[in-house]
Design a protein around this nucleic acid. Structure first.
Length: 880
RNA sequence: GCGGGAGUGGCGGAAUCGGCAGACGCACAGGACUUAAAAUCCUGCGCCCGCAAGGGCAUACGGGUUCAAUUCCCGUCUCCCGCACCA
């Protein structure tokens, strides 16, 4: 009997060792190449980590440990994006100060990270709510303000009356708040905006040099949405000097323009509306402003609008074109007005059909009787453009417009300026005061940070006023320069602010003089590998790039991009179990009628019973409560006849499909958990979690343990080792494993790297001895994946220093070349036999040998093959 | 609707400069050890026919190119993700 592998004592021992010896502390070392590997900044939520979260963190840990062993000076830090709404909501519900909740959650997260055996340099831990950090976030805001990139403007925001706060776009889903599902309305408020649009072109162009997943780059390009075209001016009939400017990407179709459309909010709507049309126009504008986004979405594609009674003059032809208003034209894009070319724009076409407006074909190539033709072609019915291909026609038209002062070439972006203020408590205050005379000033550098006032009540006041506005003493100040009375800006920054530059702070986390030193920045930046969820594709990653470029222009950073390589780990999914009932209002007093999913059909989004047509609501059964019948079908906890529907989806509390890593570690240890998460499949692909697979990882670890420890049961026993490399067979196996594992880590194939380690452990155990070189190579290869086990085995092998700083094993490439090769023999492409031949045989020798094969002779029956195909060292195929 | 990605055993997955499909792991079955169980170890394990030897069929579906296709081309279906009146 061997002493079984006990993960708990081993893991506790080495985690303690790493902490005591500060094994992973990093500092600038110019003798070594640096490698900065970073995980996306976690928000320390109250729920803690579930097994889905660590996937990316474990991957960076493997890479970080690997790179260290390859001689890199590794920076692998961790910190907390700790401002945010949940702590504030909790404060409102319970009165607990968000700082308290946040600290508690951070402690829990940190404990979980440590129990995962991460090699973070904890001396660099940062927390965005720490005044020492807030100070520099505000300092950067000052820079933005000084550069004219931060400004106040009145813009419509998402106001949630039930929560009493403004919400970010990403916190609103289908017109309801993400938290609680309360209605959200749009109201205009004076807000801080950041001029991200000034960087639009650079945000697109600089993507080219980044090693990021192509889909993410594409999403960013589309989000910025650059489009080139022209502005064209249309004189309004009967109103001297008034002109309507439209934006179009197809100036070549100007001759096909048959009417103009303004957004209902366009400033000239009132001016161009005639007396007769006023009632209709006002009714329409009113209706549109009341219509929620949700309602608009439901009616997608349906065109509504009203004629204003006004006309413009066609800039070339001088003919009269009617002006309409319609909500398919957006006030916030371009000029809020379009020239409609129904023959060549799908939306205009639908609108023209709905309101019987004329359609004139001006680009040949489509069937404009049945649909708009939006492709390129040759211009027709277009005066001086006739016969020109679309690109030439565009240039020609722009030249004409510019020459006649009726338009100009322009570029437009979908990207809007970034709404940067929130009416909340738990965020960075703006370092801004508003003076009595109406001017706005930033707080001088020497007075930073501006800290949050202490409040007892974190509730918003209800009427758009941020909670900070109630802190009288805090709010009222005297401007030291002018001695005027002033009030502090009561808004706070959104959560994104802290995560826009945290990766810089990690380079130099306790600097009191600057956000970070030039020296640290020049050494560590840029981030070499950045790992985090694709859900941040356009938000965090765009915001951080924007700030980084501003800091680049200020000379604070020396690269124009912060994150060189980006990787998105796929999501780990959970199984949830569903049935339906008719208790739509969740009334606890009624006894609902329940049914399995198989009785449900969908009418649009609504689930209804397939016979009674009654509307039903989905119910979820926690995985623990699910029972299994004899046919291995999941069934309802109390009702046998209800077979549950198994759904794989994102882990979440409400679905009852969350697996806590603490439980897995308790049962099998961290190394098994780490191995499983990496072994599940390719890093960037999602896969359902299956706890049943973890014992397999545990068994592998146990085999590895026994391999080194041998059969002795004393505490310090060691398998009998043979000095040196052992037999050729053993040396080959070892070399092949080193080569394979190294290659797989380099290409991020961590799942196949692990399988190669398993093959090694299996095959080396079949040989009758264990060479020291094989044992020590294996332990080092294992170290990035199962660091605790590797440390323990390394110690067993007689070493007194950590394996984390050992060099990565090497091998002799000559060992990879074998003396023999197996050649499959095919007849008509089908595998029929195999032969074993010396590796250096020529085609003739191999084919000759192949024809001697009895199996093959049987099949060929003496007939000469029509053709013989030999693939160098791969196979022989006889075509008959 | 548009754009992107993906469909391989009971399950997670491996193999793509076209060249032995199913590495590795889970589950399952049989065996060894044990008084017994657990643990551990060994063996088997795509489907169909066959006692076996062997053969046939198989990488979502239907075609095509090729000596050879999971891999390349055309079409269809399904799932996931992103965008959604951006002129």
């Amino acid at each position: 009997m061997t002493i079984p592998y006990d993960p708990h004592s081993i893991e506790a021992k080495w985690q303690q060792y790493w902490m005591d010896h500060q094994t992973f502390a990093s500092s600038i070392d110019r003798q070594k190449p640096k490698f900065y590997v970073l995980d996306m900044f976690p928000y320390p939520s109250g729920a803690g980590l579930h097994v889905g979260h660590p996937k990316g963190y474990i991957a960076t840990d493997v890479i970080s440990r690997y790179k260290r062993m390859r001689g890199f000076n590794v920076l692998h830090p961790m910190g907390w994006d700790a401002f945010g709404l949940p702590a504030e909501q909790y404060a409102i519900e319970t009165g607990t100060h968000p700082r308290e909740t946040t600290q508690k959650n951070i402690q829990n997260f940190k404990r979980q990270f440590q129990s995962l055996g991460m090699d973070y340099d904890w001396s660099r831990e940062i927390d965005t709510t720490d005044p020492a950090y807030v100070r520099w976030t505000q300092w950067i805001f000052r820079k933005l303000y000084e550069k004219g990139l931060a400004y106040l403007a009145e813009v419509p925001v998402n106001w949630c009356p039930a929560l009493g706060t403004v919400l970010a776009n990403e916190e609103v889903q289908d017109g309801k708040s993400e938290r609680g599902g309360h209605p959200v309305v749009r109201v205009p408020l004076r807000q801080w905006m950041l001029r991200i649009t000034a960087y639009a072109d650079r945000l697109i162009e600089d993507l080219d040099v980044l090693d990021w997943p192509e889909p993410i780059k594409k999403m960013q390009r589309e989000w910025v949405g650059r489009s080139e075209g022209a502005q064209i001016f249309f004189e309004v009939c009967g109103r001297d000097g008034d002109r309507i400017e439209v934006f179009t990407t197809r100036p070549d179709t100007l001759f096909g323009s048959t009417y103009l459309v303004l957004a209902p909010e366009h400033p000239l709507v009132k001016e161009v509306t005639t007396l007769e049309q006023r009632v209709a126009v006002e009714a329409y504008v009113g209706e549109v402003s009341r219509r929620s986004d949700r309602a608009r979405m439901a009616e997608f594609g349906k065109k509504t609008g009203v004629f204003t009674g006004g006309y413009v003059l066609h800039p070339v032809l001088g003919t009269k074109l009617p002006i309409w208003i319609a909500d398919y034209v957006l006030a916030t894009y371009g000029t809020g007005a379009i020239m409609a070319v129904p023959a060549h724009d799908t939306r205009d076409y639908e609108f023209a059909k709905t309101f019987s407006l004329p359609i004139i074909e001006v680009v040949a190539g489509g069937e404009t009787d049945t649909a708009a033709f939006t492709g390129e072609g040759v211009s027709m019915n277009s005066d001086f453009l006739n016969g020109l291909a679309t690109p030439q026609a565009k240039t020609q038209m722009i030249d004409w417009l510019e020459a006649h002062n009726k338009g100009a070439k322009t570029v437009n972006y979908k990207l809007r300026d970034w709404l940067f203020s929130r009416q909340r408590y738990w965020g960075e205050p703006f370092p801004v005061i508003h003076l009595e005379d109406g001017t706005t000033k930033v707080v001088p550098e020497s007075d930073l940070p501006v800290l949050l006032p202490e409040l007892d009540d974190f509730r918003p006041s209800g009427e758009f006023e941020p909670p900070l506005a109630r802190a009288q003493e805090w709010k009222e100040v005297i401007d030291p320069e002018t001695k005027q009375r002033a009030i502090r800006d009561a808004n706070t920054m959104p959560q994104w602010a802290g995560s826009c530059w945290y990766y810089l702070r990690f380079c130099d986390p306790s600097n009191q003089e600057a956000p970070l030193s030039i020296e640290a920045e020049r050494y560590w930046m840029p981030v070499d590998l950045y790992v985090g969820g694709a859900e941040h594709a356009v938000l965090h990653l765009l915001y951080a790039r924007f700030w980084h470029k501003v800091l680049f222009d200020l000379g604070i950073v020396h690269t124009n991009e912060p994150f060189q390589k980006l990787l998105n780990p796929g999501m780990i999914l959970g199984y949830s179990y569903r049935y339906y009932d008719n208790n739509l209002s969740d009334d606890p007093s009624v006894t609902p009628r329940i049914c399995p999913s198989s009785d449900i059909v969908f009418e649009g989004e609504t689930a209804v019973h397939k016979e009674s047509r009654e509307e039903m609501k989905a119910r979820w059964v926690t995985a623990n409560d699910v029972r299994w019948n004899e046919q291995s079908q999941p069934i309802h906890p109390t009702i046998d006849s209800i077979v549950l529907e198994e759904v794989t989806e994102k882990m979440s509390k409400s679905r009852g499909n969350v697996v806590n890593p603490d439980d897995v570690i308790e049962e099998y240890g961290t190394d098994a958990l780490r191995l499983y998460e990496m072994f599940m499949g390719p890093l960037d692909k999602g896969a359902p979690w299956s706890s049943e697979s973890i014992p397999g990882m545990y068994r592998f670890l146990q085999r590895a343990y026994r391999l080194i420890k041998g059969d002795g049961n004393e505490e310090h026993s060691l398998a009998p080792l043979v000095d040196g490399t052992g037999t050729t067979e053993q040396a080959r196996l070892t070399a092949r494993t080193i080569q394979g594992v190294t290659h797989d880590i380099e290409t991020m194939g961590l799942n196949t790297a692990i399988s190669k380690l398993m093959v090694f452990a299996r095959d080396i155990a079949k040989t009758d001895s264990l060479p020291r070189v094989s044992a020590e190579s294996f332990v080092r290869l294992l170290a990035p994946f199962a660091p605790h086990m590797a440390e323990e085995l390394w110690e067993m092998l007689g070493h007194s220093t950590t394996v984390a700083w050992q060099s990565w094993p090497d091998y002799d490439p000559a060992l990879l070349v074998s003396e023999e090769m197996t050649i499959p023999l095919q007849v008509n492409g089908k595998l029929r036999s195999k032969i074993q031949v010396p590796a250096d045989w020529t085609k003739e020798q191999v084919v000759e040998q192949a024809q001697q094969d009895t199996k093959l002779q049987e099949l060929l029956q003496g007939n000469a093959p029509r053709k013989v195909i030999y693939v160098e060292k791969k196979l022989v195929n006889f075509v008959v």
